[in-house]
Nucleic acid binder design. Structure first.
Length: 297
DNA sequence: ACGAGCAACCGTCATGCCAT
DNA sequence: ATGGCATGACGGTTGCTCGT
């Protein structure tokens, strides 16, 4: 296990990396005990030039390293991961999910635990068609749960800044929506006439949907049949909704970013395992030949 | 040029999970 | 119990490719 020949794939920028292709297109070395291979890995939100390489070594170690600012992480199970980007999730050849937390000094030890991927059951008494349809679909374990199972990898809190221009639409019920008019300090015309039956005076209206969170809105009706909602109350609820939508928007962005990273790491793990498999097959072949030679002598 | 098909991305909603 | 966060699902938009 002394000789080392490397195979090195090439890749484009972060958006065009295909670790699977780069891994499968390579060929193992011809030296009998060579089981080292390099698979390129590009982590999301890195500069295109910041490529990452994954190396399988004879003792089945897995090494992932970037082109710059290399930090090494020794993993007890015989995996070595070199990364320069925090909050990355790496699958190693051991079949375990590795979560990485980069610390200032190199050779940082990271946790190595198995990944639990048990499905969640989602029973519910709600029998709405949409709910039924949703229940038909399987729900993956959340990335947060996976990370928690792994011992709590810290995801960098690099959220993007908020964007202006949120909607002002407020949903009152599945069939009602309106655009508040804040030119009036006290009441806004909110609902077309005829959508709700009412008598005169002030009424209360339950705001439905996750956005509203079951809030109660007071409203009044005029002779034209138009409904009014007290401005300050509506303004407050609209502000809360906008805040929530904004936060959720950013959360969705972050979630997608993590998901992409997770998928890339899975793809790279496939590439690593393929290379490892290839190398082991090669080694087995060599040992068989050696055995046959000795047998014939 | 134009429409269909597709993939990527985004915002929103619904809901599970966790901390308090 | 409740609020906040994370994420799956859904629908819409946009850009690209390809066939006509």
């Amino acid at each position: 296990m002394e000789g080392m020949v490397e195979e090195n794939g090439t890749t484009g920028g972060a958006g065009t990396t295909d670790p699977l292709a780069s891994a499968s297109s390579s060929t193992p070395g011809s030296t009998p005990h060579v089981v080292t291979s390099i698979v390129q890995l590009t982590l999301p939100s890195q500069a295109p030039s910041a490529q990452v390489q994954s190396v399988i070594q004879p003792n089945q170690q897995s090494v992932i390293q970037t082109a710059s600012n290399i930090q090494s992480v020794q993993i007890p199970k015989g995996n070595v991961i070199l990364v320069s980007k925090p909050s990355s999730v790496i699958h190693t050849t051991q079949g375990t999910l590795q979560t990485l937390q980069i610390k200032p000094e190199p050779n940082t030890l990271v946790n190595t635990q198995g990944q639990s991927c048990s499905d969640e059951s989602c029973g519910s008494g709600d029998e709405s068609p949409k709910r039924k349809y949703r229940e038909m679909l399987t729900r993956r374990p959340s990335y947060r749960k996976i990370l928690n199972d792994l011992g709590g990898a810290e995801i960098a809190d690099n959220r993007m800044g908020s964007r202006p221009g949120c909607e002002t639409e407020v949903s009152l019920s599945p069939s009602l929506s309106f655009a508040p008019d804040f030119t009036n300090d006290y009441f806004c015309i909110v609902i077309p006439a005829g959508t709700i039956q009412t008598d005169s005076g002030l009424h209360t209206l339950a705001v439905s949907g996750a956005a509203g969170g079951g809030a109660i809105v007071q409203y009044a009706a005029n002779q034209d049949g138009q409904f009014y909602v007290p401005g300050p109350i509506l303004e407050d609820q609209t502000r809360k909704r906008e805040l929530r939508l904004m936060k959720n928007r950013e959360a969705a962005r972050e979630c997608r970013r993590k998901k992409k990273e997770y998928i890339k790491c899975l793809e790279n793990r496939v590439a690593v395992l393929e290379n490892q498999n290839k190398a082991l097959i090669e080694e087995l072949k060599t040992l068989k030949e050696l055995y046959c030679q000795q047998k014939t002598e």
